[in-house]
Structures are given as structure tokens and as C-alpha cells.
């Protein structure tokens, strides 16, 4: 008898596992509204702690919408929507390339409203991908490490500095591991497109036994603790939020150009609650008018006029160009080249 029960239990477990989501969830939180009538399912790459102020402000304006907020990595988000067609209404992601691919492959709904119309052309694509934040990739330096050195302002100066002071920076430079971080990969590929100095910089960094990281947060922690003298291509929005409570760490925007990562949202084609998703897109598109939300979340809103006018700021261009680096062969080649440059068996 017992064997039978056990077998039945095992089979039930297996069925449950199959039914459950195959993609990995990092966090999940349900925001019940006072008069909840519709449930808005969001899958996002932004963690709950940073996104909560925005969700609560949205719910204040729309008290009848429950929000089911699921956090996953960009790759898992892609798997959930593209491969599994998981029932989410809205996808919020910092992986512009994957969002573009979702729209290109027909997973995004077209939506036009006065709010989305007011977005500059670089902040949307096909009226399906809508940017709501612009986050610069910056250099973070430890002030302690630069007591006797001048802080570089361009990539050329950075290369020169690293080349001239190998002892100072041996093992004390950090950057994204593009093999594991989708965001790091996107930044690196865009850098390679924007400047010829990218590969030289990678080469120089490889020679200094550069440490590789998965996330901006850890790099900032290591700069603050003094393990790193500098971290290259750190997400500026994270850095600024963390620096409010840290001393001795400085954010340096490069003067030759600053890549701007755009956090984007798309409404899925199989959205059950598209109307709520559209209200969220409108709300996010107008975040520029709510600076307190940017302050609370640490997510800088799209600046319509300033960014369009500024020369050094380069928003990463949404569109089919982003698909190029998602190409399997292109990715293989890029990562092999990058690996050959940065992972060197130095003495």
C-alpha cells in the first residue's frame, strides 16, 4: 500500500513540475489593490526593491488594478515569453536587444497614445517597444587609488593610464563578464561598434588580469572596499543609488561618449489584461514628469529634450541593428575574440 502511495506522490510531483514554469523566477510579489478587478502580470528584470515605488505610485492612480510582479533575469524573461509564451501582460527589461527581438518576432502589441507619441523617436521602436529610463554606462573609480594619478576622462586616456601604470592596476580593474551577463554583452558590443579603442582597451585590461563580474552591484561594492581601483562599464543608475551611502567612490562619465541603456517595456500579444498594461506603459512613458519616482527607484527617466540635444550621450539605438549581436555565429565570434583579449595567462 505504502509503495503505491509513494509512487502516486512521485507521479504527482512530476506532473506539478511539468506544469510549473520552466523559466527561473528570482522574486515575486503580489500587490493587491483596494478594489481589484483586473490582475496585471508583469515580468521584469528590475528587482522589487527598486521598482516598488513606481508600482505603488501606479496603483495609487489606478486603484482597481492588482499587480503580480515577477522578477527574472533577462535570459529567463526571454525564455518565458519567446519560448514558453507564459501569460504575462507586460515585459519590462533592460535587455534592449532581447526586447527588440521579441518585437521583431511578433510578440509585442502595437500601442499608440498621446503619452507614447510624446516619446522621442530614439526612445521607441515600431510603437511596440517603449523606453522609460535611460541609464548611462560609466567608469567608477576609487578616490583612494587615484591619490597620485589623474582620473581619465576619455577611453584613450584610460588606455594610456592602464598601460603606463601596470603595477597600480594589476588585478584591480573590474568589468562585466560578457559570457554570463547579457547586459555586459550588449554594452561591450555597442562599445565595439562605437569606437575602435574598445579592442585595445580590452587587450590592455586583459594584460592587467582584470576581474570579471556578473553585476554592477558587486563591482561597486569592490570599488568601495578598495579591492578594485576602478570598474569599467558600470550601470550609472546603480552606482548613483549606492553612492548615496558610500564615500571614496567617484562616478566618471567618459567624455568621448556615454552609452545610454534604455529600459523598455512591451505589451505582449497574448496579454489578458492589455488595457492595464497600456495604462502602465503610459504611466512609465510619463515618468519624466514624476522626478520623485526616479529618486526613489534610482531609475532615471527618459529625458526628452536634454538627451536629444546632448552630443556625448548616445542612446543605444533600438531596431534591427541590435539583432546582429544576437546572431549565434556573431555572438560566438565576439565572445571568442573578447575571451582571447581579456583572459590572458599572464605571469
Amino acid at each position: 500500500m505504502r509503495i503505491i502511495y509513494l509512487t502516486a506522490w512521485l507521479i504527482a510531483q512530476m506532473i506539478c513540475a511539468t506544469l510549473a514554469n520552466a523559466f527561473e523566477i528570482e522574486e515575486q510579489k503580489l500587490y493587491k489593490s483596494p478594489t481589484g478587478t483586473g490582475n496585471l502580470h508583469i515580468i521584469s528584470t528590475a528587482d522589487i526593491s527598486s521598482f516598488e515605488p513606481i508600482l505603488l505610485a501606479f496603483q495609487e492612480e489606478n486603484p482597481n488594478i492588482d499587480i503580480d510582479y515577477v522578477v527574472a533575469s533577462s535570459a529567463q524573461t526571454m525564455a518565458a515569453i519567446h519560448d514558453e509564451r507564459a501569460p504575462f501582460d507586460l515585459v519590462i527589461s533592460s535587455a534592449m536587444d532581447l526586447q527588440t527581438k521579441l518585437a521583431n518576432d511578433g510578440f509585442a502589441q502595437t500601442y499608440v497614445s498621446s503619452a507614447t507619441d510624446s516619446l522621442p523617436s530614439w526612445a521607441k521602436w515600431r510603437n511596440q517597444v517603449f523606453a522609460f529610463t535611460q541609464e548611462p554606462a560609466v567608469l567608477v573609480v576609487s578616490e583612494h587609488a587615484f591619490r597620485d594619478l589623474s582620473i581619465p576622462n576619455t577611453r584613450e586616456e584610460l588606455i594610456e593610464l592602464l598601460r603606463d601604470n601596470p603595477q597600480e592596476f594589476w588585478g584591480r580593474v573590474g568589468t562585466y563578464d560578457v559570457r554570463t551577463s547579457g547586459f555586459g554583452y550588449m554594452l561591450a558590443t555597442q562599445n565595439s561598434r562605437n569606437t575602435d579603442s574598445f579592442w585595445r582597451l580590452t587587450e590592455v585590461m586583459g594584460r592587467l588580469k582584470t576581474r570579471l563580474y556578473c553585476c554592477s552591484g558587486e563591482m561597486i561594492d569592490d570599488v568601495a572596499s578598495g579591492r578594485l581601483a576602478m570598474a569599467y562599464n558600470v550601470l550609472g543608475s546603480y552606482a548613483e543609488k549606492r553612492l548615496q551611502t558610500m564615500d571614496g567612490v567617484k562616478i566618471v562619465p567618459m567624455q568621448d561618449f556615454v552609452s545610454l541603456m534604455l529600459r523598455t517595456s512591451i505589451i505582449t500579444t497574448n496579454a489578458k489584461n492589455a488595457s492595464a498594461a497600456k495604462r502602465m506603459v503610459d504611466f512609465l512613458s510619463m515618468m519624466e514628469t514624476r522626478p520623485e519616482l526616479s529618486a526613489a527607484s534610482g531609475l532615471p527617466a527618459v529625458q526628452r529634450l536634454e538627451t536629444t540635444a546632448a552630443k556625448g550621450l548616445r542612446p543605444i539605438r533600438l531596431g534591427p541593428g541590435l539583432l546582429v549581436f544576437l546572431d549565434r555565429l556573431k555572438r560566438e565570434t565576439f565572445i571568442r575574440n573578447w575571451q582571447n583579449s581579456i583572459v590572458q595567462n599572464n605571469p
Binding site: 534591427p320 546572431d327 555565429l329
Partner: peptide
């Protein structure tokens, strides 16, 4: 046969 997909091809 290998391919280095040019950025301009799609952009």
C-alpha cells in the same frame, strides 16, 4: 562556412 554578420546588414 562561417559568417561574421555585419552590423550594417540589418541596421
Amino acid at each position: 562556412v562561417r559568417l561574421e554578420l555585419p552590423y550594417s546588414a540589418l541596421s
